[in-house]
């Protein structure tokens, strides 16, 4: 099945974190997912978490070079959400024979495995950043995430020149890497 050109456009928008595209997908599909979760012992908060996680899966897929959906966006999102919710229920050790729903499903196991891996890495980085403390966190955020130039950062953070800022950033980076890699090693050892 060829992917609908309008849906391709939406996914391209999503890959660029385009607000308009995300809003459209949200409007079209959120209610379906919410119904699925609510009908299977979930809450509204669960529905939001699951849908947003599915959006991340979709985002990763849209960004990848070998991107091909091969089914309706609706089917894909439904399949991912259903699988994610089953997993969540199993983790909570709630007895679940199957999640109800008669929709068509597509295999999404690979994507979810990749998501699981990346989620762990994301959480480790989030934790490392949390433990970094200020002003390091803002400095790292400005340079690596917002991709600001050193001169700009020096101005914003009140350093006398870019070299001072660079020096400070270097110290922060070393600390962050230490935090991140120790968590990373621990995780691999487990």
């Amino acid at each position: 099945m060829k992917t609908d050109p309008r849906e391709i456009a939406l996914l391209e928008g999503l890959a660029k974190n385009d607000r308009q595209a995300i809003e459209t997908i949200y409007k079209q599909h959120y209610n379906m997912v919410q119904a699925l979760i609510l009908n299977n012992n979930g809450s509204v908060d669960d529905a939001r978490d699951i849908f947003q996680e599915a959006m991340i899966v979709l985002y990763e897929k849209a960004k990848s070079d070998s991107f091909e959906l091969n089914c309706l966006l609706k089917t894909y999102l439904y399949s991912v959400c259903r699988r994610l919710w089953l997993k969540r229920l199993q983790q909570q050790q709630k007895f679940v024979s199957d999640v109800n729903g008669l929709e068509e499903l597509v295999p999404v196991e690979e994507e979810l495995d990749a998501l699981g891996q990346r989620n762990i890495a994301y959480q480790m980085m989030e934790k490392a950043m949390m433990n970094l403390g200020e002003p390091c966190r803002s400095l790292i955020d400005a340079f690596y995430l917002q991709k600001k130039s050193m001169t700009e950062i020096a101005g914003n953070f009140g350093y006398t020149n870019a070299d001072n800022a660079k020096n400070q950033k270097y110290k922060c980076l070393m600390r962050l890497k230490k935090l991140f890699f120790s968590a990373y090693k621990n995780n691999n050892n487990l």
């Binding site: 949200y26 409007k27 991340i56």
Partner: peptide, 26 residues
Amino acid sequence: MFLQQMDQFGEWKNLKSTLQDVHHQL
């Protein structure tokens, strides 16, 4: 490897905040 993780972290962070925003707005 570290920079890749940072990049991805940044992307997800942005995406998540957009998603929360959109959810709230809708």
